[in-house]
Design a protein around this nucleic acid. Sequence first.
RNA 1: UCCUCAGUAGCUCAAUGGCAGAGCAUCCGGCUGUUAACCGGAGGGUUGUAGGUUCGAGUCCUACCUGAGGAGCCA
Length: 440
Amino acid sequence: MPSVTTIAEIGKHEGQLVTIRGWLYNLRESGKLLFPIFRDGSGVIQGVVPKSAVPPEVFDAVKGLTQESSVIVEGKVRADKRAPGGHELDVSNVQVLQRVAENDPYPISLKEHGVDFLMEHRHLWVRTPRQAAILRVRAEIIKAARDFFDERGFTLTDPPILTPAACEGTTTLFPVDYFDEQAFLTQSGQLYIEATAMALGKVYSFGPTFRAEKSKTRRHLTEFWMVEPEIAYATLEDLMELAEGLITFVVKRCLERRRPDLQTIGRDVSKLEKIKTPFPRITYDEAVKLLQDAHAKGALENKFEWGGDLGSPDETYISSQFETPVMVHRYPAKVKAFYMEPDPQRPELALCVDVLAPEGYGEIIGGSQRTASYELLVKRIHEHNLPEEAFKWYLDLRKYGSVPHSGFGMGIERVVSWICSLEHVRETIPFPRMLHRLYP
RNA sequence: UCCUCAGUAGCUCAAUGGCAGAGCAUCCGGCUGUUAACCGGAGGGUUGUAGGUUCGAGUCCUACCUGAGGAGCCA
């Protein structure tokens, strides 16, 4: 058997006889000339099988192939200007591992399909070139984020998935029976990495989080992945610099390493090429003014009043005013989580920041400086009607060498959705979990 | 939880209250450069469920089920 290669690497074997191992993506035929298209997970290539050039059994084997049948193919690599990838394979032999039965054909044809049907067949949908490209971009984004923190002296510390109580108490949690005790799936690792930050200085976590909210929008999953850095002695200003640094690093990496995938997806990369630091920073007060002006001009339906949290249409409007992500900071403390440090200049504001992605994608990062004072934190826990005893360990962090510290969470799926310019986050993760989706 | 929309062949969709259809997929036949190939033919249906109006319902009415888009909430 000639040496095995991948379709992505096939250009390096021009003129050579190679073996590729994969699946039949499509078969076109023109009389005694067959054009099987193979995929192997790294890419797609068209084979050419003239009846006159191969043994009859090879021609018949290819002619009888059904979509997604698994095959090991031998052939000679030939450069061809007509081929989308620049190369074709003159097939000399085919070994069929498993032929898909014609009375039960591969359900996902090359034509258009509806969302529900595709989601019901997600285990097969991931094979299509566009979906595979998105998953490669996702992997690159995760790798880039981890490299970013690893290269800057952060230590990866994994928070627990099973937790005894609400981290923030506000959103709905998935309950789990833990040996007859009530436990919940984590909705954020933040509180735990505040502890490890006090131990290691600069830490981050990367893992799944769970929210039992009945959200039904293109931005929500019930199970999603977050990257969360937490840094001892960092201020809100430090945090904003870190956030814009992380985002530009990730975008640049995708442009460097996943450009062909972005093209497969149909992403207008020129918009990503404009992402440079520093990002515009506007205060909540300025954002309110922007929204009220927009309402006056008729660009926004609802009049925004100071004091409320930004709604989805509000975020969309603000982010549409900029070509790079924009950072909105210092929201009213009332609409934010209990653990956020008040602004010493204006205590009614929290030292927090949301990063809104451009092109209407909205919030991809939310972060804040954390309350350092024991007394204030106890007060806030009571104000939010949270059980103080559940936060005893968290309050200990303010009793034993409390320092200013800050951190944020970046939602991986929303970043993937923005970088790939997708309609919905359900395509950013291999098996999305949503309000009405637990299968497959 | 609320608002809006949809459910017809395996898939994507069409059908003025009057014989349930097309494209793709599958099967058979044709084509030596096809690019979601094309051309000819065949098979394929309890129109989401239950009731109602009507001579007659895929179509109109009621309830329910399922899904989608959005709001709220959030990353």
